[in-house]
Design a protein around this nucleic acid. Sequence first.
DNA 1: CCGCCCGGTTGAGGTACATCAAGGCGCCGA
DNA 2: TCGGCGCCTTGATGTACCTCAACCGGGCGG
Lengths: 249, 249
Amino acid sequence: MGSIHALHHATQARDSDASRHAIGLLSGLSAETRKRLEQLIGRPRILHRGERLFSAGSEGDSLYLINSGSFKAHVDSDAGEEQITGFHFTSDLIGFDALETGRHTHTLEALETAGVYRIPFETLQQIARGDSDLQRLLMKKISRQLGDEHRTIFMLGRMNAEQRLAQFFIRLSQVMQESGRMADELNLSMPRHDIANYLGLALETVSRLLHRFQSSGLLKVAHRNVQLLNLDGLQHIVRKGDARLAQAH
Amino acid sequence: MGSIHALHHATQARDSDASRHAIGLLSGLSAETRKRLEQLIGRPRILHRGERLFSAGSEGDSLYLINSGSFKAHVDSDAGEEQITGFHFTSDLIGFDALETGRHTHTLEALETAGVYRIPFETLQQIARGDSDLQRLLMKKISRQLGDEHRTIFMLGRMNAEQRLAQFFIRLSQVMQESGRMADELNLSMPRHDIANYLGLALETVSRLLHRFQSSGLLKVAHRNVQLLNLDGLQHIVRKGDARLAQAH
DNA sequence: CCGCCCGGTTGAGGTACATCAAGGCGCCGA
DNA sequence: TCGGCGCCTTGATGTACCTCAACCGGGCGG
């Protein structure tokens, strides 16, 4: 799911703090490289809900570092059908998809007010030429995205509805942990419609499953706030594909 | 589908010729770089059907250039369920998935006898440091894979069975064209089971659809040989999701 | 040349999900 | 305070596809 990073910030940091936060992701790099990167990126661009960072088919020669907020990435058919390929959140690096042809293969749309740094790819690569750590970091980020998409493909190809939703929450929880926040409370930044679309389900199915999960004591849902009460149980569903087994234990 | 490159070679070239072919994919690079690469790669490793180039979870510090033959890439659940994420064929560069953590996220298995060059990633990157064309080539290859996986995700999330199979053949046909061969005759290197798995369908469904496509005059299937008789019709199915429209015209 | 086995086809029946349809609820603006 | 409108929930029905099961045919070993 790209990095399935689509959570609300409970607190919105001041711009300067937030900036340091996202750029901090580039730690481990030499002071020299960091300095050059900081000069390169300038001020973040602000987007509001529904605004597009870029669209499928548009030209792209840059990467974008998400400083705050969240995005959905989607591809669209000629008929205008949309399929969300992943969600992205603070510290994600996006835009790799334009590298092959110079045009983006998917669209990135803000789920809430968000800020991103634009990083011209050519310049970034010049800097990377002199810093193998940065080179490695870039490869890691793009490789991670490949891994995320493999997981998404597995989900869509082999999992039933329960497994999909359970895995969705588990991965959101993991992302929370990685960014150092509570892993058992989620504030979803996307509507049910987008969750369903991402999972390849009808939104009614998602709604019913949420109800069932709550009845099973797996989680507690209030609007877009979700308390994860039994992560083991969710994990159990993903493995066995049967919710009844989860509450049995 | 990675590059959905899984076709038989109608003719098997001599080793030296085949080698030149795959390495030829690196054309556009400077003579100096090509020379260094050719020194780097040595002799190809030969794998037979069912053998694994690498497995999910295993350590990986190299890329692999497919010189001949074809592979399926798949991820597996704890329960041993397999989901094919893509097919790869001659001239594909694979193994990017290990870059993030040093371990592969999926398994690559030969569909037929195949030869691959191993390219240690660290060394490759050193060479790339002095050659921005090679750097760009690497990025293009990995970016292409991202684009392929986006298409796969769309297929699994939004398309019905007919659309999936039609798209499968269209993409195989495109790959044929790119490698300069007849675009209307396919010699599949994978069994029905793998096609079905990749498309997220039961193999019986694939079998029935093949029959229907043949009845509609869209293609002619004999064992693993498939003649594409009406690519426009297939394209029509992908767009509209309704085979009856295809034969109507 | 025969028989087996694997990959593929064909058929009958079940089901997990989508679709269609009718509310409910919280939020915003008047 | 009251509509009105998104967003979500809940229920009733339909169906695309899966599952189970029998069968077919070609290739290969004996």
